[in-house]
Computed example of a mutant assay.
Amino acid sequence: MTVPKLLETTPGRFSLLLHAGTTPVDALVEELGHEPNGYFWEGVARRLVATEDPSLENRFNYDPEGDMFCAYGEDQAALEALGELMAGVAMDSSRMRSLVAAADADGFIFDD
């Protein structure tokens, strides 16, 4: 799985999953000094929500692990929107480079 995938885990409950280490930008993430693990991707998600779609704030929860990013909740539309934002970064080196550079400039800490 190279981009986040949304699953309905139980009726009305959804999980957005991204298996760490499977994206086209992994080598770039490492080059930028980060580990492309689930915790790094949580930072990416939080940064995207804060800077690109603040309306998503507090509409789902995060539960990353070393090998997987996970966001979950009952708001399917919010998780779909987050998935689209994350896919854009996971598939585009220039977007990832810009995101990390802006985060670094703002003092944002990726917990990777």
Rank of each mutant, 00 (worst) to 15 (best):
T2L: 09
V3L: 10
V3N: 07
P4T: 01
K5E: 14
L6Y: 07
L7E: 10
L7T: 08
L7N: 09
E8R: 10
T9N: 06
T9F: 04
T9V: 14
T9G: 01
T10L: 11
P11A: 12
R13A: 11
R13G: 00
L16E: 03
L17I: 08
H19S: 12
H19R: 12
G21H: 04
T22K: 09
T23K: 02
P24Y: 03
P24D: 11
V25F: 03
V25M: 07
V25N: 04
V25R: 02
D26T: 10
A27P: 03
V29C: 11
E31D: 15
E31P: 02
L32G: 08
G33K: 09
H34A: 02
H34I: 00
H34G: 05
Y39T: 00
E42R: 10
G43H: 03
G43L: 01
V44C: 01
V44Q: 06
V44K: 00
A45S: 10
A45N: 03
R46E: 14
L48Y: 10
L48M: 13
V49E: 05
A50W: 04
A50Y: 04
T51M: 11
T51N: 13
T51D: 14
T51G: 13
E52I: 05
E52S: 14
D53H: 12
D53R: 15
D53Y: 05
P54F: 12
S55Y: 01
E57T: 13
E57I: 06
E57A: 15
R59N: 10
R59K: 15
F60A: 02
F60E: 00
N61E: 12
Y62D: 00
E65Y: 06
E65F: 02
G66A: 13
F69G: 04
F69Q: 04
F69C: 06
C70M: 14
C70I: 10
A71M: 05
E74N: 09
D75Y: 09
Q76C: 11
Q76A: 14
Q76V: 07
Q76N: 09
Q76S: 10
A77C: 02
A77F: 06
A77E: 15
L79R: 04
E80A: 12
A81S: 13
G83C: 06
E84T: 15
L85M: 05
M86N: 02
A87H: 04
A87I: 05
A87G: 13
G88S: 09
V89Y: 02
V89N: 07
M91W: 01
D92R: 01
S93D: 14
S94N: 12
S94F: 11
S94C: 03
S94T: 13
R95E: 14
M96Y: 05
M96A: 06
R97K: 15
S98C: 01
V100G: 08
A101F: 00
A101P: 06
A101C: 05
A102H: 06
A102L: 10
D104G: 12
D104Q: 14
D106I: 00
G107K: 08
F108Q: 01
I109R: 13
F110R: 08
F110N: 07
D111L: 13
D111P: 06
D111F: 12
D111G: 06
D111S: 14
D111W: 10
